[in-house]
C-alpha cells in the first residue's frame, strides 16, 4: 500500500510521517501530482493559517487535485478546515468538499482559553474511522477555529460549544484533532484509516 502525504506550506507534516513509520508504513511526502493521484491513501495534514495555505494550494494547483481524489483522503487539523467551504480565518474560500464554514471560537467565559489546546473527548462516534474506539476517548487538539456540527460530522467535541471533531463524506475523512499526536488512541484511528 502506498500512502502519500501532501507536501505544502503547513507545519507539522513530519509528525504524520513519524507516526506512520511507527505503524510500519513509509509514506511519500510529496507535491507531485502523479504520485499523489496514484497513492492508495492520501493524508492532508498540518498546522497553519488558512489564507496562506489556500494561496499556496491554488498557486500549485493542488486545490483541484485534492478535490478530485477518489481514494480515501484524511485531512488533519488545518487540512480538515481547508476541506470546508469557507474559513473565517482570513475570510477565505476553501476547497468546498464539506459544505460548511469554519468559524472563530468566541470565548463565553473567562476559562474559555483560545487556542483550544490539549486533550479533549470525542463523542457520538460514527464511521469505520472509529472502529473499536469507545465514546469519550481523549485526543489532542490545537486550534482557534472550529467547524460547527453538520450532516458530515462523525465525532463531536465540547469546547465552548459542541463542534465537529471529525467529518466524513464519500472518500473524504477529516479530523480536527491530531491523531499523530494522540497516543495509542490516535494510532488506532490512523490504523483504521489505513484499513479503509
Amino acid at each position: 500500500m502506498t500512502v502519500a502525504i501532501v507536501k505544502y506550506n503547513a507545519g507539522n507534516i513530519y509528525s504524520v510521517d513519524y507516526a506512520l513509520k511507527r505503524l510500519g508504513i513509509d509514506p511519500l511526502i510529496t507535491a507531485d501530482k502523479e504520485i499523489l493521484q496514484k497513492a492508495d491513501k492520501v493524508i492532508f495534514p498540518g498546522q497553519g493559517e488558512a489564507t496562506q495555505t489556500m494561496q499556496y494550494l491554488k498557486a500549485h494547483r493542488l486545490d483541484e487535485l485534492i478535490v478530485g481524489f477518489k481514494q480515501p483522503v484524511l485531512g488533519i487539523c488545518i487540512g480538515m478546515q481547508l476541506m470546508c467551504k469557507f474559513s473565517e480565518e482570513g475570510n477565505v474560500d476553501c476547497l468546498g468538499i464539506f459544505d460548511t464554514p469554519v468559524l472563530k471560537f468566541h470565548p463565553q467565559k473567562q476559562e474559555n482559553k483560545i487556542p483550544h489546546i490539549g486533550w479533549n473527548n470525542l463523542a457520538n462516534l460514527k464511521s469505520d474511522l472509529y472502529r473499536e474506539i469507545p465514546d469519550g476517548i481523549f485526543t489532542y487538539f490545537v486550534h482557534s477555529y472550529y467547524v460547527p456540527v453538520n450532516e458530515h460530522t462523525i465525532a463531536e467535541t465540547d469546547y465552548i460549544l459542541n463542534f465537529s471533531a471529525s467529518m466524513h463524506k464519500d472518500n473524504f475523512y477529516a479530523t480536527q484533532f491530531h491523531p499523530e499526536k494522540s497516543g495509542s488512541a490516535g494510532e488506532l484511528i490512523l490504523k483504521n484509516f489505513l484499513n479503509l
Binding site: K21, R22, Y140, E180
Partner: peptide, 8 residues
C-alpha cells in the same frame, strides 16, 4: 523524540 514518542 519525534520518531519515538506519540504525544506532543
Amino acid at each position: 523524540v519525534a520518531a519515538n514518542i506519540n504525544i506532543p
